[in-house]
Amino acid sequence: MKERSDRLSNIQILFIVSSTIIGVTVLTLPRTATELAKAGGFIATFITGVLMALMLIITALLARRFPNYTIMEYSKEIIGLVPAKILGFVFFCYFISVGATILRLFCDAIKVLLLENTPLEVLIITFLLAAVYLCLNGISSIAKICELFEPLVIGTMLLVIVLSLKNFNFEELLPAFKQDIFEWLHAVPTLAISYLGFEVLLFITPYVQDASKVVKYGFCGILPSIFIYSLFVAVTVGIAGVEPVTRSLYPTIQLARYIKFPGGFAERFDIFFMIFWILGAYTTVSSFLYLSSVSITRLLGLRNYKPFIPLIVPVIYMLALFPQNIKEISMFSQYASYLGLALLAVVVVLYILAVILKKGEIFKNDNK
């Protein structure tokens, strides 16, 4: 049965999904997309977003079919106990891997852009402790923080895009329309990690007030990331050009630095942007820490996830420190993305099996 201590509104579902997706990778996404698809990076980013939105719909439909349980419980009814346990362990590894990747990307950016003399280890520990504090207060606290911060994060990113349009040159994007569609599709697996995070629906649906609307609000949650990511890539290339973007470590920050106000007002707009970007990164890392603790708890057949958080933190810390350079971080991120795509494929199979076998009715009958 589902726990009833935390109840999430529909709008909170929207912001949880959005805040879990929009986070650290926005800094490097234009460079990654441009390296893979050149001028067509914004098209590849949009295609990836549309495909991931379809995956979100299937994920939400599966979660809605079993509104009182997480995937850890109902997967046993669909594929059996042992395969379900294996799936649960893979989910646990996936959440830890993505959480560690995002944490490392965030702390590297903070060290390069703001705190050059601060040891990387100190940044990672500090940010992890802040995430632990939020997670220990439960899913309702995470939802409230997402509901508070996410509109500010989205608004700030849209502001950067709008203010950058005066320097935008559409001619830089024209080569994209001469590319083959396979050049765009080739970039999809790598870009997918920027949209991962909506898997949270598989674990938080039991806490939703109205599970029948989880598909609608989950879908609305991914829409901001599709448009913001695609616009960021397009505007960055349109202002700087393909080659400068591929050589830039954090092209989104460079985009914010191009913004100038008359009279010297707000000369460092990039600092303003980073303040709200940090808020987005905080909610993303917190969500994945929560998901990893809940997944291992349900895997072991337990309910209280809080004792596992201190045990998971050292694992995430060591994984975050494992990559030695930017290249290794990119490889680690790519592997995490592939693992996420594999899990989404399994989710699709689970949904198809649940429909064919008409699974879900037994759970509904148990609650009558």
Rank of each mutant, 00 (worst) to 15 (best):
M331V: 14
T284L: 10
P151F: 10
W277R: 08
N10R: 14
F177W: 03
Y335I: 14
M331F: 15
Y351I: 00
V235P: 03
I110K: 00
L311W: 08
P323I: 03
G41Q: 07
V294R: 15
F92Y: 08
T236V: 10
P151E: 09
A176G: 05
R31A: 14
Y69R: 09
L341T: 04
D108N: 11
L81R: 14
A109C: 07
N304K: 04
G155S: 11
P307T: 10
P30R: 07
L196F: 11
L8D: 12
E3R: 14
V245D: 07
A320V: 02
M55Q: 12
E328A: 11
R7A: 14
F177P: 03
Y69A: 14
P206L: 06
M331W: 14
Q12N: 13
I312W: 07
T126W: 00
E147N: 13
V200R: 00
E172Q: 09
G218S: 05
C135T: 15
A234Y: 05
K368I: 09
V90Q: 02
L27T: 06
A342I: 15
W184F: 14
K327E: 15
Y74P: 00
F272C: 01
S286D: 05
L128G: 00
P244M: 07
I16S: 02
I43M: 10
I79G: 09
R303T: 15
S75A: 12
A320C: 02
F127A: 01
I362D: 15
K213C: 02
S141K: 14
S330R: 12
L344G: 11
D210L: 05
G280C: 07
L350Q: 07
L202K: 04
F261Y: 03
I253R: 04
Y258Q: 13
P175Y: 05
A131S: 15
Y282E: 02
A345R: 02
T126S: 09
A130Q: 06
K166R: 14
F127L: 08
K260Q: 11
A192W: 13
T246L: 04
Y250P: 10
I125T: 12
V245M: 08
Y217G: 10
E267S: 08
W277Q: 11
I309S: 03
I226W: 02
T283L: 03
S330H: 09
T284H: 09
L158Q: 04
G49S: 06
M331E: 15
V237P: 01
F332R: 10
I11F: 12
I204G: 13
I11T: 15
